[in-house]
Write a protein that binds this DNA or RNA. Structure first.
Lengths: 206, 206
DNA sequence: TTTTTTGTTGATTGACGAGTCAATAAACTT
DNA sequence: AAGTTTATTGACTCGTCAATCAACAAAAAA
C-alpha cells in the first residue's frame, strides 16, 4: 500500500481528526490513539509525522485559526465601506463553519492550552491582534479616537458569545450572535453621534 | 493526632487546594496527590473525604460560585436604584477576589468540565440564570422590553472579559473590565432614549 | 538489481495516576 | 475495659497512555 507523498495527506487527516476528537470529547484529554484511529492510521504513524501530541494540538490550532482568517479575508474582500467591513468580520466570526459546536469546543480548549503552552498563547495572541486590527479599520472612520475602546469591548463580546455557545445544548445560532454584536456596535456608534460625555449609568464615578 | 471533627476542615482545605492547583497548573490535569499535598494530607485521605476527583472539582466549583454569589448579594444590599444595582453586579463580578488569576483560571476550566459533566453544566447554568436575573432587575426599569436583549449581551460581555483576563500576562485589571462593561451599558441605555428603530450599522439587513 | 528513502504497524517500555485496602491510633461510648 | 467510630497513611493494584523500536513493504534512485 505504501504510496509515496503521503505526508501532507496524513498530516491533514490528523489535524482534522484532532479537532474532531477534541470537540467530541470536550477536552484535551484525547489520546493519540483516538486521534490516529479517527484519522485511519496507527498511533505510531501519528507519532511519526508529528513530534508528539502537543505538536498535533498546535497544528490543529493553527488550522482553525487559518480557516477563520481565510473566511474573514474572504468576507472583507466583498465588503464596502466601514459599516460593511465591520459586518463582514462579525458574520465571518459566527459563520456556520467557525461557529459549529466542534470548532467552538476546540477553541475553548485551545484557550486552556494557551495558559500553559507558550506557542499556543502566541497563536491566540495573533488571532486577537488580527481581530482587533480588523475591527479598528472599520471603527476608526466611524468612531475616531473612541475606536480602540469599542474594539476592545467588541472583541471581548465576540469571545464571550463563543464561550456561551459552548454551553448551549442545541445547535449554535450564529445569526443570533451576530445580532447581539451588531446591537452593541450600533449602540456604541450612536453614542458617539449623540456626543454627550456623561454616561447615563454614571460611568465615571465609583 | 487524630482529633475529631476534622471532616469539614479537611474538606474546606481540599476545596481551596483544588482551586489553587487548577489555577496554578492551568488545566484540570491536576493529580489528587498534588491537591492533597497542597492541602497538607495524604492522597488517600482526600479520597476518603471525597468520593473521587470529580467530586473535588464540583465542590471547588460550588465554592467559587458561592463566593461570587455572596459578593454580589453584599454589593446589591448597599446599592440604590436600578443604576446602582447594575453597577453593583458589575463591580462584584470583577472584584479583586473573583477576578484574580487563580479564580479566573479555575473558572475557565469549569467551563471545560461543563462540556462533559452534567453536574458542572447545571452549576454553570445556575450562575448564568442568577446573573441574568440580577441584570434584568436593574435593566427593566431602564430599558423596558429591551432589557432581555441588553442582559444577554452584557452577560456574554462579562464572560468574554473573564476569558480575556486568562490570557493577559500581568495581573488582571478589574477596574478596566468594569469600565468596558459600563460603557456597553451606557451605550445601550442611551440608545433607548434616542428611540430610533433603524440601526446605524444596518442592524436588520442581513 | 542493489540501495536508499518513505510509509506503516504490532508490540513493548516506562511512567504515572486513580482508587482501594489493611493497619495504626486517637478519641468517644457503654 | 472493651468496643466503636473517626482520622490517617503507606503500600499496592490495575489501568492507561505517550513514546520508541524493530520489522516489513513498496517505491525511487543508484
Amino acid at each position: 500500500m505504501p504510496k509515496v507523498g503521503m505526508e501532507p495527506i496524513r498530516k491533514a487527516a490528523l489535524v482534522k481528526a484532532t479537532i474532531s476528537e477534541i470537540g467530541r470529547v470536550g477536552s484535551l484529554d484525547v489520546t493519540v490513539a483516538q486521534i490516529a484511529r479517527r484519522a485511519g492510521m496507527s498511533s505510531a504513524l501519528a507519532h511519526h509525522y508529528f513530534g508528539g501530541k502537543e505538536d498535533m494540538f498546535l497544528a490543529a490550532m493553527r488550522h482553525v485559526l487559518t480557516l477563520y482568517g481565510a473566511e474573514v479575508r474572504g468576507a472583507l474582500a466583498l465588503a464596502e465601506g466601514p459599516h460593511g467591513r465591520l459586518r463582514a468580520v462579525l458574520v465571518a466570526s459566527f459563520s456556520a463553519a467557525n461557529f459549529r459546536r466542534e470548532a467552538v469546543g476546540a477553541w475553548l480548549n485551545f484557550w486552556v492550552l494557551a495558559q500553559t503552552v507558550p506557542q499556543a498563547r502566541r497563536l491566540l495572541a495573533v488571532y486577537q491582534r488580527r481581530l482587533r486590527s480588523n475591527l479598528l479599520a472599520g471603527l476608526r472612520p466611524l468612531a475616531g479616537d473612541r475606536a480602540e475602546a469599542i474594539a476592545e469591548g467588541l472583541g471581548a463580546l465576540i469571545d464571550g458569545l463563543y464561550l456561551r455557545a459552548v454551553l448551549r445544548t442545541g445547535p449554535a445560532d450564529g445569526a443570533a450572535a451576530v445580532q447581539v454584536a451588531l446591537d452593541y456596535l450600533d449602540a456604541r456608534l450612536r453614542q458617539d453621534t449623540v456626543g454627550g460625555r456623561q454616561g447615563a449609568v454614571g460611568v465615571r464615578n465609583g
